[in-house]
Nucleic acid binder design. Structure first.
Lengths: 242, 242
DNA sequence: CACCATTTGTTCGTATGTATT
DNA sequence: TAATACATACGAACAAATGGT
């Protein structure tokens, strides 16, 4: 990599107290200190910890609410709604379009990631990939839908992670999160033949990445996508019949 | 397309006055009523037009400021900083990584878009592509850097637009915007041989899309990417020499 | 340079509706 | 049902910064 060449930045100098608090709370959320779905400390607690006035805390909280990161419930408390601003914003944007468009972009990232992963994967990546594949096969036997979906997403995440491009990984993860509900509702009606074909392709894909064979990895990713496309079309015909 | 299958939505009912004002102002910005870089009406004016109190207006403005859409300057006014929330958020995220990562994802979208464009382009797309190519060649002769860059971006935008995937197009455009400054600073030092090779590839790419030849389009996009990679490496070596 | 109008920033107070206890 | 706490919205006054005369 040819380093030291970053995007032009303009902000930096602007820092009110509220802005700092926002940055700090956003940091806590994005670092995972404040877990999604849980309740954050009550306002008096935040006032003590951050050392600012209650008004400032309130203003920062409201800003984060409007950004989609937090959610306030009267008489209850404020909860974490999303782990990243990009995720929340992207989610709002993706909701305006059909799932097909999101899946198409997601696959596009996946295919390039497969190619790059074959070129760049580390030894540590290999270990993670093998582990994911093992869990994936086990979850398959248990036939628990949610567990299987989680294992599937973890495997694909690991492949994209092995490409070592953080922007690509972020976009991919957020898109996976966005389509998860849709996919989950789709799985129960699947053709078993296709599912097994999918599992074979997962093995083929991982092996290609481990073998550092970029072309094979890309081909496997493409075949994987074609199977998913077929599943979607089957589901569509089922829907129109019902 | 198999329609009527959208992402699960949760929000919907939450509507305070501030939220409504935020939505309204965001709409004005995204529709282009309030142009980027210009000043929006002063608070008293907004109070009259929207029929809410100044505090409510201020809260909405602050929310939009924290989202990156607006920028306030005391004693001067409030200015439009970005046209879309996704653009602003994505920009902040991309700033944290090197340009290389962004360019890599952008190329990935571009390649898939080229393939899809060849499959889906309409007759109207063809007209637009030919026009962009013509303007592109003319800008080339004038040797004005900014004009040439604009024509180049317009051409690539048209190709991605011809793929008819709005999510892909949005992401691509915002990434182009994010790297524009970096590319602009890179152009003056370019090798003329490479530039002409790039122009030839632009023609090859557009013709492939018009001919509905998906494989050729993807190949041309990949070759285009390789040339850009070469340019980046040349620039990197020049930097290290200086 | 001083002055002034404009515009945003800050901090009060008050009224009203709503959720929790 | 009554009491309490909180969120929301409005209004008003003053402070601070900017741009032009």
């Amino acid at each position: 990599m040819f380093g030291g060449f970053y995007l032009a930045l303009k902000e930096a100098i602007k820092s009110t107290l509220v802005t700092q608090v926002i940055a700090q709370m956003k940091g806590l959320i994005e670092e995972g200190e404040w877990v999604v779905g849980t309740r954050i400390p009550p306002e008096p607690e935040l006032v003590k910890q951050l050392g600012v006035s209650r008004n400032t805390v309130r203003e920062a909280v409201q800003a984060l609410v409007h950004m989609g990161l937090l959610e306030t419930r009267q008489g209850d408390g404020t909860y974490v709604r999303s782990q990243s601003e990009l995720g929340a914003t992207l989610m709002r944007r993706l909701r305006r379009s059909g799932v097909e468009e999101t899946l198409e972009v997601r696959h596009c990232l996946e295919r390039e990631a497969a190619r790059l992963a074959a070129l760049r994967r580390s030894d540590e990546d290999v270990q993670i990939l093998r582990l994911c594949l093992k869990l994936h096969d086990e979850a398959m036997r248990c036939r628990n839908i949610e567990d299987f979906l989680s294992a599937d997403l973890a495997l694909h995440h690991a492949i994209v992670a092995a490409a070592h491009n953080s922007v690509m990984l972020d976009l991919y993860d957020h898109m996976s999160e966005a389509v998860r509900a849709s996919i989950s509702s789709m799985i129960p009606k699947l053709d078993h033949v296709l599912v097994h074909r999918l599992l074979d392709l997962h093995h083929e894909l991982v092996e290609a990445v481990i073998a550092k064979n970029a072309e094979a990895a890309e081909v496997a990713a493409r075949k994987h996508d074609e199977v998913v496309q077929t599943m979607l079309q089957e589901r569509a015909t089922q829907e129109s019949e019902a």
